[in-house]
């Protein structure tokens, strides 16, 4: 959906870092993150393993483990309030279910000893504004995520359901409190593709109806293309490029973004070889200076040993690169 220039973001991160320890020199899991999420939009956070996606999501939920939470710096505004200075956990108390999360492994969010009916009702009880008896609302919640015969399913325990069904139950639970912001951290990575497809459709549909904002974390560009309005690309703890979804796919400005997009095989043609990025992503203690990507970049020059500034490359589209690409992808 479109966002208006004048609209205030629901969430804004300014210069957010999470370090291993308090010092500014301590290795950073994520570094100087600036990110806005507007009401009702879906922002994709895409990047390879270890780039800091989960850390970013946990930071803005204030759910980092204590050691890392101590290393959190910067400002995080949620609905105008700076939540980076709240005590960890206090956010959950203040904001109730306004910010909700779906994780990769549905079993991590479900309690194996209680029936799913039980767990749904627990969530529903906290939503004081909704009407109707708990049982009926729990059934409704399961219906809303298209679980067949919801009444009998209420008595099921998590292990009695398929992975796809479990993830839908997690969805139902996190939506019981009508969140305004949903953080979905690789919610479909453990699902089969035909089940993933249905879950994504469902999530999109629910989002539209509830008009919630979403931060969608994934490493899959196909999922980003299907789900997101805007995209932030992470590499080695930084957002290296951010822009509207079509710009990111059609005219990526960062060399990393373009190289990564091109290295993914697609069903519609089979080239002789895939374009590749040499080497592998750095660990958090071995991150190169300057542009974090320079040792793997086809265009690296001596200038790249200095940290690049974030440059505007188009409307609401910027990249951290000294030599941003300007051409349409695929054009010579």
């Amino acid at each position: 959906m479109m966002t208006l220039e004048t609209e205030t973001p629901l969430l804004e991160m300014r210069e957010v870092s999470v370090r291993l320890g308090r010092g500014a020199q301590a290795p950073a899991l994520i570094e100087n993150i600036d990110l806005k999420i507007f009401p009702g939009e879906t922002v994709g956070l895409v990047g390879e393993s270890g780039s800091g996606k989960t850390t970013l999501g946990m930071a803005l939920m204030r759910l980092l483990p204590p050691l890392l939470d101590q290393g959190l710096s910067g400002e995080i505004f949620y609905d105008g309030e700076d939540i980076a200075n709240l005590r960890a956990g206090e956010l959950a108390r203040l904001r109730g279910g306004e910010i909700s999360m779906i994780l990769q492994d549905p079993m991590a969010s479900l309690n194996p000893i209680f029936s799913i009916g039980n767990q749904l009702k627990e969530g529903l009880r906290l939503n004081a504004t909704a009407k109707g008896n708990l049982e009926a609302r729990a059934i409704q919640a399961l219906e809303s995520v298209r679980i067949p015969s919801p009444k009998t399913r209420l008595a099921n325990h998590p292990h009695q359901m398929s992975g796809g069904m479990r993830q839908r139950v997690v969805g139902a639970i996190s939506l019981t409190r009508s969140p305004r912001l949903l953080i979905a951290d690789e919610p479909t990575t453990s699902l089969d593709v035909t089940i993933q497809y249905q879950f994504l459709e469902l999530l999109k549909d629910l989002q539209k109806r509830m008009r919630m904002a979403m931060l969608f974390i994934t490493h899959d560009f196909g999922v980003v293309a299907k789900m997101c309005d805007r995209v932030a690309v992470m590499y080695a703890g930084q957002i290296v490029e951010e822009g509207p979804v079509r710009d990111i796919f059609n005219r990526p400005a960062h060399w990393y973004t373009r190289a990564l997009l091109e290295s993914v095989p697609t069903v519609d043609h089979a080239p002789e070889r895939l374009p590749t990025i040499p080497g592998s992503p750095p660990t958090i203690t071995g991150r190169p200076r300057g542009c974090r990507f320079h040792p793997r970049c086809a265009n690296a020059q001596s200038k790249c040993l200095e940290p690049p500034v974030d440059v505007e490359v188009g409307a609401k589209h910027h990249a951290k690169c000294w030599f941003p690409l300007r051409a349409q992808r695929g054009a010579a």
Binding site: V224, A225, F249, V264, T266, V267, D268
Partner: peptide, 13 residues
């Protein structure tokens, strides 16, 4: 169905 579920890296698919 498998082919439909193989999401292409194209927002205008």
């Amino acid at each position: 169905a498998l082919l439909a579920a193989a999401l292409p890296p194209d927002p205008d698919a």
